[in-house]
Design a protein around this nucleic acid. Sequence first.
DNA 1: CACCCGTGGAC
DNA 2: TGTCCAAGGGT
Length: 303
Amino acid sequence: MSEPTFATLVSRWYSEHARDLPWRRPGVTPWAILVSEVMLQQTPVVRVVPAWEAWLARWPTPAALADDTPAEAIRMWGRLGYPRRAVRLRDCAVAIVERHAGAVPDRLDQLLALPGVGTYTARAVAAFAYGQRHPVVDTNVRRVVCRAIAGEPDAGPATRPADLVATEELLPVEPAAAALASAAFMELGAVLCVARSPRCDRCPVASVCAWRAAGSPPATGPSRRPQQYAGTDRQVRGLLLGVLRETTGPVPRHRLDQVWADDVQRSRALAGLVTDGLVEPVGEASFRLVGDGGPAAPAPALL
DNA sequence: CACCCGTGGAC
DNA sequence: TGTCCAAGGGT
């Protein structure tokens, strides 16, 4: 009789206490899982749930989304934040149709090649949609492994190859069990082993946690400086996009001028939205969400 | 690697 | 009230 492994302890806890999130239910398609993963990039679960349901009701397949405009994707994205993700998700749908006949690929390298799909999302889809054995490392998993295994209060700012290796070593050999363990690690980090005031009293691995054993030392160095928002280009972009989102078709520049007083910053923000494929100019003095109201008119400059 | 990219809730 | 943080990705 050997002691249960770390993954076994967390997986048992997960089996009993996992939240009933819609993308975890039986029969959910790989596309639906991919959509959930993209929406969950830096956006809390509670805000994703209704957006995910509305999105999939409208675009149940990659082909359906690929046939619609970026403008509609941006509108459906609502206020999830980082609306470039909406455009990339549609680009991703187009790529899936073109490269994979409309089916979400199951190979890691093919997933990684899709727009908006990085190290985390590719592995999450391969594991959760296709049951493959890959370490799935997000901010939650990094925190759990960093604390429980390394005994340190917090992980670094970005996922490193070493994080993947450390997590892989914790996974069971059997692929389905490994995928379950990855979901369990994430859940533990999201629900109990949270950044501020972790709930160690309910933790299934508290007795083997290296961080607890070390006396739960607090984080020392300046981790990452808080990201500013008020007064930044991001706030201005958000204001501009808010106007464009609520209007169908072109919006005269004078209406956009009202959202922010600083001409230089406002122009820079608008140009950024154009560069990022969210907004396009219409004629001399109007802008719209990309593709809003049909294909763009021929560029007059080309004659 | 550093920085940029939205939004809203909790403390 | 300001700060911190949330299933990252692209450049």
